[in-house]
Protein backbone atom coordinates (compact mmCIF):
# COMPACT_ATOMS: atom_id res chain seq x y z
CA UNK A 1 0.00 0.00 0.00
CA UNK A 2 1.31 3.39 -0.97
CA UNK A 3 2.49 5.33 2.05
CA UNK A 4 1.67 8.94 2.78
CA UNK A 5 4.73 11.15 2.54
CA UNK A 6 6.02 13.69 5.04
CA UNK A 7 7.88 16.34 3.03
CA UNK A 8 10.16 18.75 4.85
CA UNK A 9 10.42 22.20 3.30
CA UNK A 10 13.49 24.43 3.61
CA UNK A 11 13.61 28.04 2.46
CA UNK A 12 17.04 29.00 1.18
CA UNK A 13 18.37 32.50 0.61
CA UNK A 14 21.90 33.01 -0.75
CA UNK A 15 22.80 29.46 0.20
CA UNK A 16 21.55 29.69 3.80
CA UNK A 17 18.33 28.42 5.28
CA UNK A 18 16.08 31.11 6.65
CA UNK A 19 14.29 29.07 9.31
CA UNK A 20 15.51 26.59 11.82
CA UNK A 21 17.11 28.75 14.46
CA UNK A 22 16.00 26.41 17.21
CA UNK A 23 16.81 23.15 15.51
CA UNK A 24 18.01 20.50 17.94
CA UNK A 25 21.29 18.66 18.29
CA UNK A 26 23.82 21.44 17.68
CA UNK A 27 23.43 21.32 13.94
CA UNK A 28 24.59 24.31 11.93
CA UNK A 29 21.04 25.27 11.27
CA UNK A 30 21.85 27.82 8.66
CA UNK A 31 23.44 25.29 6.34
CA UNK A 32 20.88 23.69 4.01
CA UNK A 33 23.18 20.73 3.39
CA UNK A 34 23.51 19.98 7.10
CA UNK A 35 19.80 20.39 7.61
CA UNK A 36 19.00 18.18 4.64
CA UNK A 37 21.20 15.44 6.03
CA UNK A 38 19.68 15.78 9.49
CA UNK A 39 16.14 15.48 8.11
CA UNK A 40 17.13 12.59 5.87
CA UNK A 41 18.48 10.76 8.90
CA UNK A 42 15.40 11.74 10.91
CA UNK A 43 13.07 9.99 8.48
CA UNK A 44 11.83 12.68 6.08
CA UNK A 45 10.34 10.96 3.05
CA UNK A 46 11.22 13.80 0.76
CA UNK A 47 12.65 17.31 0.94
CA UNK A 48 11.84 20.47 -0.94
CA UNK A 49 14.06 23.53 -1.15
CA UNK A 50 12.57 26.88 -2.04
CA UNK A 51 15.11 29.34 -3.33
CA UNK A 52 13.95 32.73 -2.16
CA UNK A 53 17.04 34.47 -3.52
CA UNK A 54 16.42 37.27 -5.92
CA UNK A 55 19.88 37.68 -7.44
CA UNK A 56 21.61 35.79 -10.22
CA UNK A 57 24.61 35.11 -7.94
CA UNK A 58 22.26 33.58 -5.43
CA UNK A 59 20.96 31.29 -8.11
CA UNK A 60 24.46 30.00 -8.79
CA UNK A 61 24.93 29.35 -5.07
CA UNK A 62 21.65 27.42 -5.08
CA UNK A 63 22.91 25.10 -7.81
CA UNK A 64 26.02 24.40 -5.73
CA UNK A 65 23.82 23.71 -2.74
CA UNK A 66 21.72 21.26 -4.76
CA UNK A 67 24.88 19.45 -5.87
CA UNK A 68 26.05 19.12 -2.27
CA UNK A 69 22.66 17.98 -1.03
CA UNK A 70 22.48 15.32 -3.75
CA UNK A 71 25.65 13.74 -2.38
CA UNK A 72 24.31 13.60 1.16
CA UNK A 73 20.75 12.40 1.00
CA UNK A 74 19.27 9.33 -0.62
CA UNK A 75 15.62 10.22 -0.68
CA UNK A 76 14.00 12.34 -3.40
CA UNK A 77 14.13 16.10 -3.24
CA UNK A 78 12.63 18.94 -5.22
CA UNK A 79 13.80 22.48 -5.84
CA UNK A 80 11.52 25.43 -6.46
CA UNK A 81 11.45 29.19 -6.32
CA UNK A 82 12.25 31.49 -9.19
CA UNK A 83 12.42 28.74 -11.82
CA UNK A 84 12.09 30.87 -14.91
CA UNK A 85 12.89 28.67 -17.90
CA UNK A 86 13.24 25.12 -19.10
CA UNK A 87 17.02 25.58 -19.14
CA UNK A 88 16.89 26.58 -15.49
CA UNK A 89 14.86 23.44 -14.78
CA UNK A 90 17.49 21.38 -16.56
CA UNK A 91 20.28 22.98 -14.48
CA UNK A 92 18.52 22.05 -11.24
CA UNK A 93 17.81 18.47 -12.34
CA UNK A 94 21.38 17.94 -13.56
CA UNK A 95 22.63 19.22 -10.20
CA UNK A 96 20.88 16.24 -8.65
CA UNK A 97 17.29 17.19 -7.76
CA UNK A 98 14.60 14.65 -8.69
CA UNK A 99 11.92 17.24 -9.24
CA UNK A 100 11.63 20.89 -10.01
CA UNK A 101 8.72 23.00 -8.88
CA UNK A 102 7.34 25.86 -10.97
CA UNK A 103 4.84 28.39 -9.66
CA UNK A 104 4.50 32.02 -10.82
CA UNK A 105 6.41 31.45 -14.04
CA UNK A 106 4.01 28.66 -15.01
CA UNK A 107 1.07 31.03 -14.57
CA UNK A 108 2.76 33.60 -16.81
CA UNK A 109 3.93 31.01 -19.33
CA UNK A 110 2.10 27.67 -18.93
CA UNK A 111 4.10 26.22 -21.84
CA UNK A 112 7.02 25.73 -19.40
CA UNK A 113 5.06 22.78 -17.96
CA UNK A 114 4.55 21.13 -21.35
CA UNK A 115 8.14 21.67 -22.40
CA UNK A 116 9.56 20.55 -19.05
CA UNK A 117 7.44 17.38 -19.04
CA UNK A 118 8.39 16.61 -22.63
CA UNK A 119 12.10 17.05 -22.00
CA UNK A 120 12.52 15.59 -18.53
CA UNK A 121 9.43 13.46 -17.96
CA UNK A 122 6.33 14.49 -16.08
CA UNK A 123 7.56 12.91 -12.85
CA UNK A 124 10.14 15.72 -12.69
CA UNK A 125 7.68 18.58 -13.05
CA UNK A 126 5.83 19.79 -9.97
CA UNK A 127 3.32 22.64 -10.09
CA UNK A 128 3.34 24.78 -6.98
CA UNK A 129 0.21 26.87 -6.58
CA UNK A 130 -0.75 29.54 -4.07
CA UNK A 131 -4.52 29.66 -3.64
CA UNK A 132 -6.77 31.87 -1.57
CA UNK A 133 -10.46 31.56 -0.82
CA UNK A 134 -12.58 33.72 -3.14
CA UNK A 135 -16.32 33.14 -3.55
CA UNK A 136 -16.25 34.87 -6.93
CA UNK A 137 -14.23 32.06 -8.46
CA UNK A 138 -15.94 28.92 -9.86
CA UNK A 139 -14.17 26.55 -7.44
CA UNK A 140 -14.14 29.09 -4.61
CA UNK A 141 -10.35 29.63 -4.78
CA UNK A 142 -8.22 32.10 -6.70
CA UNK A 143 -4.60 31.66 -7.78
CA UNK A 144 -2.01 34.19 -6.60
CA UNK A 145 1.56 34.67 -7.83
CA UNK A 146 4.78 36.31 -6.65
CA UNK A 147 4.82 34.59 -3.29
CA UNK A 148 1.10 35.04 -2.82
CA UNK A 149 1.22 38.81 -3.21
CA UNK A 150 -0.43 39.26 -6.61
CA UNK A 151 -3.92 38.07 -7.54
CA UNK A 152 -4.52 36.50 -10.94
CA UNK A 153 -7.69 35.76 -12.87
CA UNK A 154 -7.13 32.02 -12.61
CA UNK A 155 -9.38 29.64 -10.75
CA UNK A 156 -7.44 27.18 -8.56
CA UNK A 157 -9.15 23.98 -9.68
CA UNK A 158 -9.16 24.92 -13.35
CA UNK A 159 -5.48 25.78 -13.15
CA UNK A 160 -4.64 22.50 -11.40
CA UNK A 161 -6.47 20.51 -14.08
CA UNK A 162 -4.90 22.48 -16.90
CA UNK A 163 -1.43 21.98 -15.41
CA UNK A 164 -1.97 18.22 -15.19
CA UNK A 165 -3.18 18.13 -18.80
CA UNK A 166 -0.04 20.00 -19.76
CA UNK A 167 2.18 17.51 -17.97
CA UNK A 168 2.57 18.38 -14.28
CA UNK A 169 3.32 15.16 -12.40
CA UNK A 170 2.45 16.45 -8.95
CA UNK A 171 0.83 19.52 -7.41
CA UNK A 172 1.78 21.35 -4.24
CA UNK A 173 -1.33 23.14 -3.03
CA UNK A 174 -0.42 25.99 -0.72
CA UNK A 175 -3.22 27.76 1.10
CA UNK A 176 -2.50 31.45 1.53
CA UNK A 177 -5.23 31.68 4.17
CA UNK A 178 -3.74 28.86 6.27
CA UNK A 179 -0.05 29.59 5.69
CA UNK A 180 1.70 30.68 8.86
CA UNK A 181 -1.35 30.20 11.09
CA UNK A 182 -0.27 26.86 12.59
CA UNK A 183 -4.01 26.15 12.83
CA UNK A 184 -3.94 23.29 10.36
CA UNK A 185 -3.98 22.77 6.61
CA UNK A 186 -6.93 24.02 4.60
CA UNK A 187 -8.75 20.73 4.27
CA UNK A 188 -11.48 21.78 1.83
CA UNK A 189 -9.01 23.23 -0.68
CA UNK A 190 -6.70 20.23 -0.47
CA UNK A 191 -9.57 17.81 -0.89
CA UNK A 192 -11.03 19.76 -3.79
CA UNK A 193 -7.82 19.63 -5.77
CA UNK A 194 -6.74 16.14 -4.75
CA UNK A 195 -10.01 14.44 -5.64
CA UNK A 196 -10.24 16.21 -9.00
CA UNK A 197 -6.80 15.62 -10.47
CA UNK A 198 -5.11 12.36 -11.46
CA UNK A 199 -1.70 13.19 -9.96
CA UNK A 200 -0.51 13.25 -6.33
CA UNK A 201 -1.25 16.35 -4.28
CA UNK A 202 1.05 17.72 -1.59
CA UNK A 203 -0.77 19.80 1.02
CA UNK A 204 1.02 22.95 2.16
CA UNK A 205 0.44 25.76 4.62
CA UNK A 206 -0.84 25.78 8.16
CA UNK A 207 0.68 22.71 9.80
CA UNK A 208 1.24 23.21 13.50
CA UNK A 209 0.87 19.76 15.05
CA UNK A 210 1.12 16.10 14.01
CA UNK A 211 -2.69 15.93 14.30
CA UNK A 212 -2.96 18.50 11.51
CA UNK A 213 -0.92 16.19 9.30
CA UNK A 214 -3.21 13.28 10.15
CA UNK A 215 -6.22 15.45 9.37
CA UNK A 216 -5.04 16.47 5.91
CA UNK A 217 -4.41 12.85 4.98
CA UNK A 218 -7.65 11.54 6.47
CA UNK A 219 -10.04 14.35 5.52
CA UNK A 220 -8.14 16.25 2.84
CA UNK A 221 -7.23 13.25 0.66
CA UNK A 222 -3.65 14.52 0.42
CA UNK A 223 -0.93 12.22 -0.89
CA UNK A 224 1.83 14.06 0.92
CA UNK A 225 2.07 16.81 3.53
CA UNK A 226 4.60 19.58 3.60
CA UNK A 227 5.95 20.59 7.00
CA UNK A 228 8.29 23.45 7.84
CA UNK A 229 8.34 25.47 11.05
CA UNK A 230 6.77 22.74 13.20
CA UNK A 231 9.91 20.68 12.68
CA UNK A 232 12.45 23.48 12.18
CA UNK A 233 11.72 25.04 15.55
CA UNK A 234 12.05 21.73 17.34
CA UNK A 235 8.40 21.56 18.42
CA UNK A 236 8.08 18.15 16.82
CA UNK A 237 10.36 15.69 15.10
CA UNK A 238 9.58 13.94 11.85
CA UNK A 239 9.29 10.80 13.92
CA UNK A 240 6.66 12.42 16.18
CA UNK A 241 4.59 13.18 13.10
CA UNK A 242 5.00 9.69 11.69
CA UNK A 243 4.17 7.98 14.97
CA UNK A 244 0.98 10.00 15.21
CA UNK A 245 0.14 9.03 11.62
CA UNK A 246 0.82 5.35 12.28
CA UNK A 247 -1.32 5.57 15.42
CA UNK A 248 -4.18 6.82 13.26
CA UNK A 249 -3.77 3.93 10.80
CA UNK A 250 -2.33 6.11 8.06
CA UNK A 251 0.19 4.10 6.03
CA UNK A 252 3.60 5.66 6.55
CA UNK A 253 7.24 4.68 6.22
CA UNK A 254 8.45 3.86 9.72
CA UNK A 255 11.80 2.25 8.87
CA UNK A 256 14.65 4.49 7.84
Amino acid sequence: MLEKRVVVCLDVRDGRTTKGIRFKDNIDVGDPVEMARAYYEAGADELVFYDITASAEGRGIMIETVQKVAKEIFVPFAVGGGIGSVDHMREVLLAGAEKVSVNSQAVRDPGIIDEGARRFGRQCVVLGMDAKSDPQMPSGYRIYVNGGRKATERDALEWAQEAVDRGAGEIVVNSIDADGTKDGYEIALTRLISTNVSVPVVASGGAGTPEHVVEVFRDGAADAALVASMVHFGDYSVEDIKRTMAGSDIPVRMRW
Partner: peptide, 15 residues
Protein backbone atom coordinates in the same frame (compact mmCIF):
# COMPACT_ATOMS: atom_id res chain seq x y z
CA UNK B 1 -5.17 1.38 -14.93
CA UNK B 2 -6.15 4.39 -12.81
CA UNK B 3 -8.84 3.66 -10.24
CA UNK B 4 -10.83 5.85 -7.91
CA UNK B 5 -8.27 5.37 -5.17
CA UNK B 6 -5.04 4.72 -7.04
CA UNK B 7 -3.53 7.57 -9.00
CA UNK B 8 -1.17 6.93 -11.90
CA UNK B 9 1.82 7.25 -11.91
CA UNK B 10 2.46 5.32 -8.72
CA UNK B 11 4.66 7.87 -6.91
CA UNK B 12 6.00 7.49 -3.42
CA UNK B 13 7.09 4.99 -0.81
CA UNK B 14 5.69 1.49 -0.79
CA UNK B 15 6.67 -1.87 0.68
Amino acid sequence: RPTRTEKVPHIGWNR
